[in-house]
């Protein structure tokens, strides 16, 4: 049954086949498979490294974003503080300017009021003087200046004893000289009347000097070093001036409150 030559030949054949397959098949196929596995492992490692790199870069990017956000918040906070500080400064400046403007305006108003009142007083005095002079002349055929002098002299005569003593003392200290101030030029007889009356009342050797005064509206005044006796129409106009001044102040206060309300509505 067994052909031993064939057995030996088959053993040789098998060994030859084994050598050929080892060279042509196993070595090459295993090398190719090994290389593929190495390539896959290498690619896997590369992918892993890239994934780790990507994760690291993502972390870096997130950290940078956080830092940028924080910086932005800090910058915004700084800008807000600066803006608020600047606004406060501007508000203070504006308030100061408004206050200054108000004080200037108030001063201007007061000046205007004072000028108006001065002008009013002057005009009123002139007009009242003129009216009084004409009325006295038309109704009683009396001269205004003479009436003023008479009224003044009657007040001098009616001075109390203490007052009279004080005036005399004052006149003595002033070298026995007195100044009589009037609104306009007096006639000579009025000047004599005054001089005589004053010498009778105070000192016999009194030297009287007459001069015009812008301070008087319509009146007469005796001026010594320490005393002044006067009658002036200004005294009668004081209440009128007070009334006008009060009216002006009320008008100003009302306009001011209206302006403030309008400013509130506008804001």
């Amino acid at each position: 049954m067994i052909d031993w030559f064939t057995v030996i030949a088959q053993i040789v054949n098998f060994l030859i086949l084994l050598a050929l397959l080892k060279y042509f098949l196993y070595g090459r196929i295993l090398a190719a498979m090994e290389k593929r596995q190495q390539d896959i492992a290498s690619q896997w490692d590369d992918a892993q490294q890239q994934r780790e790199q990507a994760a690291k870069e993502i972390d870096d990017a997130r950290r940078k974003n956080r830092q940028l956000d924080e910086q932005r918040e800090q910058m915004l906070a700084t800008i807000r503080d600066e803006v608020e500080t600047h606004r406060q400064e501007l508000m203070v400046k504006v308030r100061f300017e408004v206050s200054e403007q108000q004080s200037r305006w108030s001063e201007a108003i007061q000046e205007e009021t004072a000028a108006f009142l001065r002008d009013l007083r002057r005009r009123t005095s002139e007009e009242v003087g003129t009216i009084a002079r004409r009325a006295l002349h038309d109704l009683a055929d009396v001269d205004l200046e003479r009436q003023i002098v008479n009224h003044f002299l009657s007040k001098v005569r009616q001075l109390g004893e203490d007052e009279q003593v004080a005036v005399v003392a004052s006149l003595r200290e002033g070298n026995h000289a007195a100044v009589v101030q009037t609104t306009g030029e007096l006639t000579d007889d009025l000047k004599h009347l005054i001089t005589d009356t004053l010498r009778r009342c105070f000192l016999d050797d009194l030297e009287v000097r007459f001069e015009k005064s812008d301070d008087l509206l319509c009146g007469i005044a005796l001026q010594t070093d320490a005393h002044k006796l006067a009658w002036d129409l200004r005294d009668y106009l004081g209440s009128l001036e007070h009334e006008v001044k009060q009216t002006l102040e009320e008008e100003t206060a009302m306009r001011k409150s209206q302006r403030e309300e309008a400013a509130k509505v506008g804001s």
Binding site: M1, T6, V7, Q10
Partner: peptide
């Protein structure tokens, strides 16, 4: 059988 004997050997 020669072949199988050869493989078995």
């Amino acid at each position: 059988l020669s072949t199988t004997a050869a493989l078995a050997i």
